[in-house]
Amino acid sequence: MKVIFLKDVKGKGKKGEIKNVPDGYARNFLFKKGLAIEATPANLKELE
């Protein structure tokens, strides 16, 4: 799953980066803790 990092996550990504991460990791950790959001076309446009 492609995500946009909202905060730095040690060993995974830095704020503003767009990366592919495992689906479970994104849903169960990154999204729940507010560390990242899904890289949807709308979210990507908002980032620019």
Rank of each mutant, 00 (worst) to 15 (best):
V21N: 01
E17K: 03
R27Y: 12
K32L: 13
G34W: 06
I4N: 00
E48T: 13
Y25V: 07
G11D: 08
E17A: 05
V21S: 02
E17V: 04
L47S: 08
A39P: 03
L30S: 00
K12F: 15
K32F: 07
N43L: 11
E48A: 14
Y25E: 06
Y25F: 10
G16Y: 09
L47M: 10
L6F: 03
D23N: 12
A39S: 04
F5N: 00
K12G: 13
D23G: 12
L47H: 13
P22E: 12
G34N: 11
V21P: 00
M1T: 14
D23M: 15
K45H: 09
K15T: 08
I37G: 02
K7D: 06
K2N: 12
F31H: 01
E38G: 04
L30Y: 03
T40W: 04
L47D: 06
Y25W: 11
F31N: 02
K2Q: 13
V3R: 00
D8R: 04
K15L: 08
V21T: 03
G11A: 05
I18A: 04
N43G: 07
F29P: 01
D8T: 12
K19A: 10
N28E: 14
G11H: 08
Y25G: 03
D23A: 15
A26R: 02
A42N: 12
K19V: 10
V21D: 01
D23H: 14
K7G: 05
L6D: 01
I18F: 03
K10I: 12
G16Q: 03
K7F: 14
K12R: 14
L47N: 09
K12V: 15
L44R: 06
I37L: 10
Y25M: 06
L47Y: 14
G16A: 03
I18W: 03
M1Q: 05
L35Y: 13
I18M: 07
L30A: 01
V21L: 05
G13W: 13
G13Y: 13
N28Y: 14
K12E: 10
L30W: 02
E17W: 04
F31T: 03
L47K: 08
V3N: 00
A42L: 10
N43R: 06
G11F: 11
G16H: 08
T40V: 05
L6R: 03
N43P: 04
Y25S: 04
K15P: 04
P22A: 11
G16K: 03
G34F: 09
